[in-house]
Computed example of a mutant assay.
Amino acid sequence: MAIKVKLSNVGIAPRKVRQVCDLVRNKKASDAIKILRFCEKKEIAIALTKLINSGLAIANEANKYDLDNLVVGTIFADEGAMQKRIMPRAQGRAYKIRKRSSHVTVVLKEA
């Protein structure tokens, strides 16, 4: 049995979120939180820490899981909605700006 936690519409591009996700994949939940604490990409690290802590809280309430043995089984970031903006440029041209967002999913399972 696994615990699945999702965070939708994070205002960060999925490519950037995936770089941090790769750091904590297949690590113990306690080790993953320690790694994220000292990660350089702070905004993403804080969001992932809150997501993992939410999963641990769900596991604690269920009383079916040993919190010391929980592992970040799968963690991935999918593309979310994209905000489209226009930047005026020289000679009457316009460039499109795509502000990307992402959906992050974390699955905690017992080792």
Rank of each mutant, 00 (worst) to 15 (best):
A62E: 15
A57V: 08
M82H: 11
Y95G: 04
R18D: 02
N26A: 11
L7F: 03
I12Q: 02
I33D: 06
V24T: 08
G92S: 08
L23I: 14
R93E: 13
F76Y: 15
V72A: 09
S101I: 05
L36G: 06
L70M: 00
R15K: 14
K84Y: 09
G92T: 09
E61H: 14
V10I: 15
A90H: 08
K16M: 06
R25Y: 01
S101R: 11
D68A: 14
M87C: 06
M87K: 14
A29G: 07
I3Q: 03
K42I: 11
V10A: 13
D66V: 02
A94P: 02
I52M: 03
R98N: 15
K16T: 08
V107C: 02
T74I: 10
T74R: 12
Y95P: 00
R85A: 12
R85G: 03
N53G: 00
I97E: 02
L70T: 00
K4V: 14
V5L: 14
K34F: 02
I86N: 10
K4I: 09
N53A: 07
Q19E: 11
L51G: 05
R89I: 07
I58H: 10
A2T: 11
M82K: 15
D31G: 00
Q19D: 03
G55K: 10
K99C: 12
L56S: 06
N69M: 07
I86K: 12
E61R: 15
I86P: 02
F38D: 06
A29M: 11
K96F: 08
A32F: 05
E40I: 04
K34V: 02
